[in-house]
Design a protein around this nucleic acid. Structure first.
Ligand code: FES
Ligand code: FES
Lengths: 149, 149
DNA sequence: GTATTTCTTGACAAAATTACTCGGAAAATA
DNA sequence: TATTTTCCGAGTAATTTTGTCAAGAAATAC
């Protein structure tokens, strides 16, 4: 998986939008200043999210951004997938070229595959609403269940 | 989290060691050739694992590496943590400096924290033995449990 | 002891990725 | 028209990842 500041900025920015009053517009610079992020960098990121229709941009004076749907419908995995590019379990560089080849999977292939799936599952369960509600902890499956398995 | 080829090489190399006959030594070059990895690069990686006492290096003719303990006692999280450096949920760059500051946690803090914990938990449940046994799939907690929650 | 094999160590260089900047265009408002 | 804001493409700087090199140390075989 890949998780850089880009992804974190994106989630942070969208929490700000989620926090704003319904249908009100938030400017890039507002977010950038408040979060101490480069505003031109943030532009790039929000543009990606806008092109994927996760947010809506309005130009002109008093313009800005807003979420295209309500916070509970936007999952963190959506956001991260868009800005970081699809999480690829690129896999190993076995003799037979790329990992995707069906023929020669190495022993660790399933491991990384499963890890990716696991992460995606986790982030796919948490919405922007959960975040602004502080409803994140305890979301992970309880360890005891797995120990018993 | 951080997961680069370094971590994947490390796990791959250690599966090779786990696959070898008990107490037999495997040379760096053997692994490097078989997996098509730069042998000098692999040196670096195995050195880290050796300095953390996960593996044992024996010099001289017919030398090589072997696991310091049995495969079921070595968890993937151990390996990754060593070579990639401890997975840090570095967090955001809020106004008040670093994320670690107790004072100003942003809303996303818990999210990344929990994600890290989740990943570590997952990789901490899978041993080298599981990998060579192909016993990785189905390790993740079943989705339905979480849906019910 | 000498030669050979193999790990050990540290410093260095190439390549790739990430993070960020810049200059301007397009749309909306006033 | 002038101003504000998003949109867009390209380019640069910084950092990290990946890999190389050269020299040394320990063990073994002869
Ligand atoms: S990771 Fe090795 S074949 Fe896919
Ligand atoms: S991630 Fe924002 S304060 Fe820790």
């Amino acid at each position: 998986m890949k998780l850089t500041t880009k992804g974190r900025y994106a989630v942070l920015a969208l929490t700000e939008l989620a926090l704003a009053k319904e249908n009100s517009l938030v400017k890039i610079t507002e977010i950038a200043v408040r979060q101490n992020i480069s505003s031109t960098y943030l532009e790039q990121i929000l543009l990606l999210l806008k092109n994927s229709d996760l947010i809506i941009g309005v130009r002109g004076p008093n313009g800005g951004y807003k979420l295209s749907t309500s916070p509970e419908n936007i999952m963190i995995s959506d956001i991260v997938n868009i800005v970081e590019g699809r999480m690829e379990a690129k896999g190993c560089v076995s003799k037979s070229g790329s990992c995707t080849g069906v023929s020669g999977r190495c022993l660790t292939h399933d491991l990384w595959d499963e890890l990716s799936r696991h992460i995606e599952l986790f982030l796919g369960q948490i919405s922007l609403k959960d975040i602004i509600a502080g409803n994140v902890l305890g979301r992970s499956s309880p360890p005891k269940v797995l120990e018993l398995k």
